[in-house]
Structures are given as C-alpha cells and as structure tokens.
C-alpha cells in the first residue's frame, strides 16, 4: 500500500500508529485503528513498515499518532526510532502548542519535523504562533469536527484564513479533514500548498485486501494527484 501511494504520486505519506481512543478522528480512522490493534499493529510495527517504504524510495513519511503511546514508548526513544527508520517526523494532534516543548526538544536536534494543527476555532494570533512553531508545513483543519469524508471542507473559511496567514507567515500550508474528492483537492490546492487525505483513502479500500486494495488506493490517489495541478514528485 505504501509503495502504491508512492508510485501513484503522493508527495508526503502520513502513516498512522494506531491508538484506541483517537479524539481527533471520526468513525473511519477510529475503526481502522481498532482493526490495526486487533491485528497486532504497534508503534514499532508501524516504524518497520515506514523503514521498508523509506528504503524503497518512498516520498517523505510522517508518522501520525496520539500522545499517550509516544509518552509510554519514551519521547527520546521514539525520536531515535523515527530517525533510524528514515521517517521525516510526526503529527501528534492531541498535543497543543503549549505542550510541544518536550517533543521539539527531541525532534529538532534529529532534524525531525513536527507539523502542528490550526483549527477553525483557533484565534488568528494563536494561529500565527502555531504556524511559526510548525516544522515542514502547518496543518490547517478545513472545518469543525473530526476527520471524516462525510463532511467536506469549508472553502470560504479556508480561503479567508489562508489569506490572513500568508500576510504573517511564510510557512507552507496543507489542508486536511474532509478532503475526499478531486474537486476538493482542486479547490484546496488553488489556495494552499497541499491537501491531506486520510479517511477517503481508507473508505476506498475498505473491505478489500492485497492487490484489490492496492488498485483502489492507486486509483484514488492518482485522481487526487491529477487534481493538485502540480508536477508529480520526481517529474
């Protein structure tokens, strides 16, 4: 699946480390995490997959997980393990800006990125601070609520917020939550530097395995890729 994502044209791959109580995630990703946990997936297991994909020449991989599994694993140990796996960094959505110091202290010396999230409820001043504290890019949440393909992005809000942020910060902006179709990607990429798709990808291959799952994922990613209007990675 990781190889398919790479060859279908993903610029960055977000790889989830499953957590059983994901507060930022809707039913699709929460259920996927449950299946992964029942299947025995762990933090180390996810990093093994990441290392394999990275050594096969995948685009940059960002791990996605919640804070408690990282804390129990040990933040320093996690940072070392990501570095060893060739991973670019991690997104940890339940760590607010004020608490990111302990992560950054281990990530920054190793060159690991820690993209942070801005939500529609975030006041502008705070959003600017978050953008400036983000590495790699800042993750703009497209609407209220949790991850899910059931509700699309709030394009008016995105446009307004991006215009405000561009005046104050040069950080690249990627938009996620509710992005599920090429139309969404086209609209978002006209405003932002990238679009992030999660639930829609899981929905696309849900219930299938192996070649069928890979084929479905490839088809969706290629369609989304084409809608970005940008050059394919490496092209």
């Amino acid at each position: 699946m990781l190889a398919a994502a790479a060859s279908a044209g993903a610029d960055v791959i977000e790889l989830g480390i499953p957590y059983g109580d994901p507060l930022a995630d809707g039913p699709t990703i929460a259920a996927a995490a449950q299946r992964a946990l029942q299947g025995g997936m762990t933090l180390d297991g996810a990093l093994v997959l990441a290392r394999q994909a990275a050594s096969d020449g995948a685009p940059p991989i960002l791990m996605f997980t919640y804070f408690n599994p990282v804390v129990q694993y040990g933040i320093e140990r996690f940072a070392d393990a990501m570095l060893a796996a060739g991973v670019a960094g991690a997104i940890v959505p339940d760590v607010p800006l004020e608490e990111t110091g302990v992560l950054r202290a281990e990530f920054a010396p190793r060159g690991l990125a820690l993209p942070l999230l801005i939500a529609p409820t975030t006041p502008l001043e705070r959003a600017v601070e978050i953008a400036e504290a983000s590495d790699g890019f800042v993750y703009l949440v497209s609407r209220l609520g949790v991850t899910s393909a059931a509700r699309g992005p709030d394009l008016d809000w995105i446009a307004a917020r991006i215009a405000e942020l561009r005046e104050r910060s040069t950080r690249p902006i990627a938009v996620g939550f509710g992005i599920s179709t090429p139309e969404h990607v086209r609209a978002v990429c006209a405003l932002a530097d990238g679009a992030i798709v999660g639930s829609a990808l899981i929905d696309a291959y849900f219930g299938t395995l192996g070649a069928e799952a890979t084929a479905r994922s490839t088809k969706l990613i290629e369609a989304l890729r084409a809608a970005t209007g940008g050059p394919r990675p490496g092209a």
Binding site: A24, P93, P96, T121, T122
Partner: peptide, 22 residues
C-alpha cells in the same frame, strides 16, 4: 494556568479545535 495540579497532573491534551473551546 496550563491546568496542572501540583505542576504534574492535568493539562489540556486535546485536539486544537477544542483548545479554544476550553
């Protein structure tokens, strides 16, 4: 101010969308 009792327990470990709500 960060929501800790005794400097160690508590806090606000929530997704950003809820931070302003809190």
């Amino acid at each position: 101010a960060r929501g800790y009792f005794g400097g160690a327990f508590g806090g606000k470990f929530v997704p950003e969308v809820l931070y302003e709500a809190l």
